[in-house]
Design a protein around this nucleic acid. Structure first.
Lengths: 341, 341
DNA sequence: GCTCCTTTGCAAAACGTTTTGTATGTCGCT
DNA sequence: AGCGACATACAAAACGTTTTGCAAAGGAGC
């Protein structure tokens, strides 16, 4: 079956292409009689007519295409959530998403953005797989853009990031509310917003509860299971042994579980553990399940596209919005009251 | 800066748009003098001219767009690899990928495929997140399509899937080569190709080594950590206790680690474990690292797009190809010779 | 009965390319 | 010198839409 175009519909409905076009778009519906409009629509339906978006895009200067450029799609488990959130929001409003992965290569990134532009994308979601501060690529000047999981030196571009400080506060408060007073913190070693923000949240939550901050209770390592294991082993052999550990990431929490196991401690009876990320694979796989603070990747992806489309459709110079997303607690089984010693 | 079109280049270079078009595409390069061609190219470069793919797509009846429809992008960690492989292959050949997630909803899937078709995609990659046998959606008739991680009732569509049997054989052979003779198998409970294929591979590998197959050494459960833990606890308390466990998935292997730990066994000294999937998050996070057989998602994604583009460019009725991908062993630290008892 | 609106439909131009057909030279050959 | 062959450049049509301007028909007001 050959593709059916608007002229085929026109011929079949015994009207001109103009009338068909008007009949199908309610915007100019007033220019066509209700009866003929219904007739045309019926014929179009019957023929299975679907407008060629390429042609209409050319005519309207609007492609209904959005670009999404990511660094490292593959290596991070968050990507899926962010992409899905973005794609859902786009699809619901009639847009389609074109995904590209720069593999963190600035040269490639340039070329990819230009390719996107050649395809006349109406806007671009510039996504990072973990929260960071970036210099916006110059290619993006002039194209509606929203930053996802990143903030820029230029304040002129809308952006969305998670509230790192609040996330850490939530985690630490959860431990405090369970009765813990000696809370270790296994922090990341990288110089990124999450590291600093979560440290700040940790300190703040302790302060709120009137607990003195003890630098000895903070250990840093690479944000992987191994780093978490080593750091936890260190903290758990301290004279002032913490009864609970707040871990920078679920991966580090996984290491903390291993350390606890090798020291003969059971979670949450002998030790409470809380993480950040809510990586299903880990948080649900661990035994007992890991209580953790979720990074709202789906929601952020959704928000980014929604904001982008709003800006595109308004197309007046809107004020950029800098969104900070809340991070909800996900309770499983790794937090309990401390042992009485 | 307003968009620069081909007529701008023509004006600046003092030639006609025809000449510009010919000068820029080497295909018809013979129709233009080498000198003017270079001149035109220089001018185009200087103006930063990039052709409008929408317009050229309309003219050429080729959009240089590919659709990729997935079930469940977000919930599976494999998605990233498959998407990346597909995207890389597409980009290298000048194509762009439009991603859609059907959330396993057939109604939505139909609509999404139609949306893709409206955008005049040149072909579609129909991807499943785990190997399965499917009925091809009728919407796809007439559109070049390749099945990714799925096979169809119709043999007329090219497809690519992993070699489940060989993957299992590889895993079990690895254990046998290490000296094990009593090898437990923790299998999935779902009725999917992987379940049957891996069981077959397990039996075959035992047979090759002259080991009798013992049904008591096979336990089934849901393919999650919890299922793996329970199944492993069962197998490890058998009178004929296996010295090694072959796990259907890395997630189940994670459960096997937990069972071993709770029984006071250390891996790989007291028990060898091998998985399938090579989920970095788990396989590298476990301690010791999990030896596992990788599912080649990146490679399959790449192959699917490459095949699809070949079929599109040949556009004669090519024979469909049904590809079966090898699954390589990834060695870490969870396999060792059995204890002498 | 005439003018003036309103309703309804159509023809044609436009979006930015690519490609076919044609025109103008220029050269080589007889 | 005359003819054809070739090289080079351009005009125009086409891809499938949307929208503007225009025309015809019908109705209302004077």
């Amino acid at each position: 079956m050959a593709k059916v175009g608007i002229r085929d519909v026109a011929k079949a409905a015994q009207v001109s292409v103009t009338t068909v076009s008007h009949a199908l778009s309610d915007a100019h519906g007033s220019r066509v009689n209700a009866a003929t409009r219904d007739h045309v629509r019926a014929v179009a339906e019957e023929l299975g007519y679907a407008p060629n978006r390429l042609a209409s895009g050319l005519r309207n200067q609007r492609s209904y295409l959005l670009g999404m450029v990511n660094d490292q799609i593959a290596t991070t488990p968050f990507a899926g959530e962010m992409i899905l959130g973005a794609q859902d929001a786009a699809y619901e409003r009639g847009w389609l998403l074109m995904m590209l992965d720069t593999a963190s290569d600035p040269e490639l990134e340039k070329k990819q953005i230009n390719t996107l532009l050649q395809h006349q994308v109406d806007g671009i979601v510039y996504a990072k797989m973990y929260h960071q501060r970036i210099a916006t690529p110059t290619e993006l000047a002039g194209v509606p853009t929203v930053l996802l999981d990143a903030t820029s030196d230029l304040g002129s571009i809308s952006s969305v990031v998670p509230d790192e400080v609040a996330a850490a506060r939530t985690a630490v408060r959860t431990l405090i509310d369970a009765g813990h007073r000696t809370i270790g913190f296994i922090n990341n070693i990288d110089d990124i917003p999450a590291t600093h923000g979560r440290f700040q949240g940790y300190v703040e939550a302790l302060g709120e509860a009137g607990i003195d901050f003890d630098p000895a209770l903070v250990a840093t390592a690479e944000s992987r299971a191994e780093g978490g294991r080593i750091a936890a082993q260190h903290l758990l052999s301290l004279p002032t042994r913490p009864t609970a550990l707040f871990c920078f990431s679920d991966r580090m929490a996984m290491g903390a579980y291993q350390a606890a196991g090798s020291l003969g401690m059971t979670i949450p009876h002998d030790l409470s553990v809380i993480g950040i990320d809510n990586l299903e694979l880990i948080a649900e796989g661990l035994w007992p399940g890991l209580t953790t603070v979720a990074l709202p990747h789906y929601g952020m992806g959704r928000w980014a596209v929604t904001q982008l489309l709003d800006e595109i459709e308004a197309s007046g110079d809107e004020e950029p919005v800098h969104m900070i997303f809340d991070c909800p607690l996900v309770q499983r089984g790794s937090v309990a009251p401390p042992l009485h010693i």
